[in-house]
Structures are given as C-alpha cells and as structure tokens.
Design a protein around this nucleic acid. Sequence first.
DNA 1: TATTGTTATACTCTATAACTATA
DNA 2: TATAGTTATAGAGTATAACAATA
Lengths: 140, 140
Amino acid sequence: MTLPSGPVRQASEVESALFDLVDQYDRAYESAAASVSLTAAQACVLGRLDQPCGMKQLAADLGCDASNITQIAARLEILGLARRSPDPSDGRARALSRTREGTKVYRRFERAFGFARAAVDRLTPTEQARLSELIRKALN
Amino acid sequence: MTLPSGPVRQASEVESALFDLVDQYDRAYESAAASVSLTAAQACVLGRLDQPCGMKQLAADLGCDASNITQIAARLEILGLARRSPDPSDGRARALSRTREGTKVYRRFERAFGFARAAVDRLTPTEQARLSELIRKALN
DNA sequence: TATTGTTATACTCTATAACTATA
DNA sequence: TATAGTTATAGAGTATAACAATA
C-alpha cells in the first residue's frame, strides 16, 4: 500500500518575499519588453550590447545554446536593432552590436521597465545599502 | 542630422543586486524543473495545486491566457502528474488537481530547487527578518 | 448574452545534431 | 582536429481568434 505523499513544503516568510520579488520583477520585465514590441529574450540580448559581443560570449552570458543566439540575433537584425559584423582577427567570429535605432529602443525599454528603480526608490539610502548587503550575503 | 543616442542607463549597486538575485533565482528554478523532467511552466502550475484549481483561476494567477493553461494541463495529464475533473456545480468548469505521482514529483522538484532556502540559510534570523521587511517595503 | 474551457494557428524560445568555414 | 557560428528540426510556451457547452 502506498502512503499519501503529504503536503508540499511550507515556505518561510522570507522565502515568500523572495518569490514575490522575483515574480514581480519578471512580469515587469516581460511587460516592458512587450511595450516596445520586444520579447524578453530580445530585450535581454539588446541590453548586453553596450559593447559589441561575440555569439559564443552571449550564449555563455545568457546560459543558453549558441544556436539560440543566432536566431535572436537574426530577428534583431531584421528589426534593424542590431547588426552582425565580421571579426577582422578571426574569420569564423562575428560580433553583434546595437544599431542607433537599437539603442533608442533599448532606452525606451529601460524607461518602461523601471521596476528596480521604483522598488529601490521606496527605500531610504541607508535601507538600500542594507538591502544590497543582505542580498549579496544571501547569494554568497 | 541625428545625434548619437548615447549610452544606456547605469544601474545602481542595489539594482545590480536585485538583478543578480532574480537571475540566479530564475536559473535555479529552471534547472531544478529540468532535473525532474519538467519545464518551468509545468513546475509552476504543479506547485499551485495544493488545492484543485480551475483553469481560469490558474491563468489569472500565472498572468497568461487560459488557452495556455489548457495545453500545460494536458501535458501534465499525459505525464500522469495532474488530472482534470468536472466541476459538479458548474458544467463548464473543470478543476485541475495533482495526482499522487504529481505530488511526489513536485516534492522532488522542491528539494532540487532549494535556492531560496539556501540563500536564506546564509543569513541569521535577524537578517532574514530585516531582508523580508525591506523587500516588502520595496514592493510596496 | 456571458462565461469556461478547448481547438486551431502562428510566432518565439529552446536544445540537439549536423554542417560550413576558419583556426 | 578544434572552434565559431549557422541551419534544420522538434518540443514547448505564449497569444489571438473562433468555437462548444453551459450558465
């Protein structure tokens, strides 16, 4: 006979707070991206192009397969927001960079996002420093 | 003539901490789900079934379209992890609930996840309370 | 007529495997 | 032979629109 598995684990108050924070952050990110007609992944890649960046590096940063970056880069290129340029020092490599339009759109995304800034603005400077400290310690 | 758009906004230290927290949380969630052969969305739905729940309610909770829930529920059903039952009081409605196997798998997911608990365990009880308080204030 | 849920469809993200070109 | 990137393909999440059954 099989015993019932029982209820799932009960989260503590801090864990719930962390969950709510992450949940709201993710939703705000997605929503801000949609507001400028980007997907979250596209906004994420676009945001990493302050400097031109190789495909392999982007894949490593985002923790996904390189073939994935190829597709996202291709779409950003079609949208006129990014451009792939040959690497003079390595014929295999290509660097992805933002176009001027891409930077404009990304800045519109940032203004639409605002989640982190708004959250932080509800805290005093001392509280902000303390929050930062606690998060860093928790992340180890 | 068009002026350059200029650099994107520079995030503050707290904002960076928030970003890192969310990023690590999301990756750990995804990875834990994969470790029990679930997608993040499937784990998310499964985790909300401590009580049977209607499709519409699930869609509202997850902030997505109801047709989306239909698909995820169908897959969870095929996997034997959840079940859709008719609602006796409303012939249109169906309630999704975890099977015993679904609860077992979800508990394995929780053990694999552990991110929030591990993070929280690096803090003293006083620090945990303070973190919780600051997050709640920041989320308003 | 409004609501719950489903189906059909299309787009995107994602990974794997096979491939091209270069190192 | 190894590496950077691409292509082909397939599974899954997502939304919209049209639909069935019920309220």
